[in-house]
Design a protein around this nucleic acid. Structure first.
Lengths: 331, 331
DNA sequence: TTGTAAGCGTTATCAA
DNA sequence: TTGATAACGCTTACAA
């Protein structure tokens, strides 16, 4: 396993200075065709490619973007990660995937990302407290922060989100039109302001129909199990006559848990006994086993926007993009 | 946004040389408590932390591990990624998540990873042709390669896999015991030798019962849709009397597609009319909607093994780890 | 224990 | 167009 060739060695082989070698690898540098040819031939022979690490040190530009994720239970993360990595790679960037957990929290991860000199950090739907990001330690020369798929009220930290106002307006309007009158909401983790937003607008638009949302189920996290458990305890403690007639879940994975409990554990019919809605439109939500009515986030537009902000093509400021209501069998 | 402080500046502030600053940040370096204290105080005041990029250049050690993924349709990738990132982060490493696709293939990704000086590359279930990795260009001073969750027959490239022989022995033994006699296999992408292995052992162990596997369905990829489509066309063209009585799918997501087609499109009963097995044990496979009999890969053992090889704690050689048959309602 | 010199492989800048 | 000098921020080896 030989060491990598350096520009210096290629220069020696090609009979030029190492700076000429650099120029041969710099698009648009002033160099004769002849020199470039010689250099590239020598580079080919020695199997030389520029050391991006050294380049980063000299240019202060690593072309690395840290993406923070703290919830791997939601399958929806996967298509987002696919799009994010693909788009960033197309822009010559690379994704550093950071798992935010109890051992490695936001502060530590941010410090580490800074030490590694990443060009930007994307907080992808992570649950942080706003104060965390206002920490004085993090205020210095930190890389620019972007929040994806989560709301952020922090001054100077742009967020790219699915427009909750538009989404919930469409959803409530659909439900009210169908004749539902006793709506309930199931939320996952409480810290997330995304949850607060969706819940807020859900109540807000029902309010316009003169209906108030009195039932709030809370799941411990965003897993199938948490959704199932939350609805199970609700059904077990609420007599049929007092139950809600439609349940809006904060995301599809919670909705699936709810659906299974309704049908399998309580033998109830969906949507006749209770309608259910999700949010995300997972691949499996479309299957006949679930056929979940849900709201699809504008994944590609969101990713495009955040990537454009990272590369500087787009002004870095909060944007909310409308998604699409997907009507299926459950509501 | 002020620039990062450097060791030189901290040295000036603390009244020592910059090398003393380095020592204060080097565990076990010889330095007086007094000096260390002064340096750390100055560092604290200036908000200094070592520049990992510069350190990497000097040490030839980036603490970055590239993880290649080419299939984001399988939700099973997520728990694997969660475990991989967590374990590597615990070891002071960080994951570079590389999306292998038509724009960014294995060769390009490997070249790029090499240029970025990553410490190791993990091919996480990607579909590559063995020749690709034998490419002369990639033979030089490339970072060490590891294959995860896929078989590799390439000399010198260790693989960490779920033991297919043990898995299929258990599976076939269970099925034969239940009285099934007309087994079929559904594979996803054909290039993957994982598929070949599972298929091979499936046929092999049925052979021991004097039964040959004549039916092979092939899905285009590893998605629900591909699984559904493959089984649909099989059922549509095969009279009930000639059909298999048990279908082993290469993974859960294909199995779910198959299950939905059986039940919803053809109104068949599972397992009475046809039994179905998957491979992976997704969270949703356990739900009453599917209740899929499947085989659970030893995710954590596999991740532990590959991480230990990456860090050098474990000898880098191919290991196959046994998983566990999960009995549910479909077979 | 501490300071010094040299080096990691590149880029920015200026002079020839 | 080309070569040379300095710098990026750190580490290693050695000398004081």
């Amino acid at each position: 396993m030989s060491k990598r060739a350096t520009a210096r060695e290629v220069a020696a082989a090609a009979g030029v200075s190492k700076w000429t070698v650099i120029r041969a690898f710099t698009p648009g540098a002033s160099i004769t065709e002849e020199s470039r040819r010689r250099v590239l031939a020598a580079a080919e022979a020695l199997n030389y490619t520029p050391n991006l690490l050294a380049r980063s040190l000299a240019t202060n530009f690593t072309h690395q973007v840290a993406v923070f994720v703290d919830d791997f239970a939601n399958p929806q993360k996967l298509p987002f990660l696919e799009a994010l990595t693909a788009r960033l790679q197309a822009e010559g960037r690379v994704v550093m995937l950071i798992n935010i957990n109890t051992q490695f929290d936001h502060v530590r991860a941010l410090l580490n990302a800074d030490q590694r000199q990443v060009d930007a950090v994307i907080l992808f739907g992570t649950a942080f407290r706003d104060e965390t990001l206002r920490d004085r330690k993090l205020s210095k020369g930190m890389p620019p922060l972007f929040v994806l798929a989560r709301d952020s009220q922090i001054e100077g930290i742009p967020a790219v989100v699915c427009d909750a106002e538009v989404a919930l307006r469409d959803i409530v309007s659909h439900l009210a039109g169908k004749g539902y009158r006793r709506p309930g909401f199931m939320a996952g983790a409480q810290v997330l302001s995304t949850a607060l937003q969706r819940k807020h607008y859900f109540a807000h638009f029902w309010g316009r129909h003169g209906i108030s949302v009195n039932t709030e189920l809370s799941a411990h996290d965003y897993s199938w199990k948490a959704g199932a458990r939350a609805l199970h305890s609700y059904l077990a403690t609420t007599p049929p006559a007092e139950r809600i007639d439609v349940l809006m879940c904060e995301n599809d994975i919670l909705a699936m848990g709810a659906l299974d409990v309704l049908r399998s554990d309580f033998g109830l019919r969906v949507p006749e006994d209770m309608a259910v809605l999700g949010f995300d439109n997972l691949e499996l939500s479309a299957t006949p086993a679930y056929s979940l009515t849900t709201y699809e986030q504008p994944l590609h537009s969101m990713v495009d926007a955040v990537v454009a902000m990272v590369t500087g093509e787009l002004e870095a400021k909060t944007v909310a993009i409308a998604g699409q209501l997907i009507l299926r069998a459950t509501a």
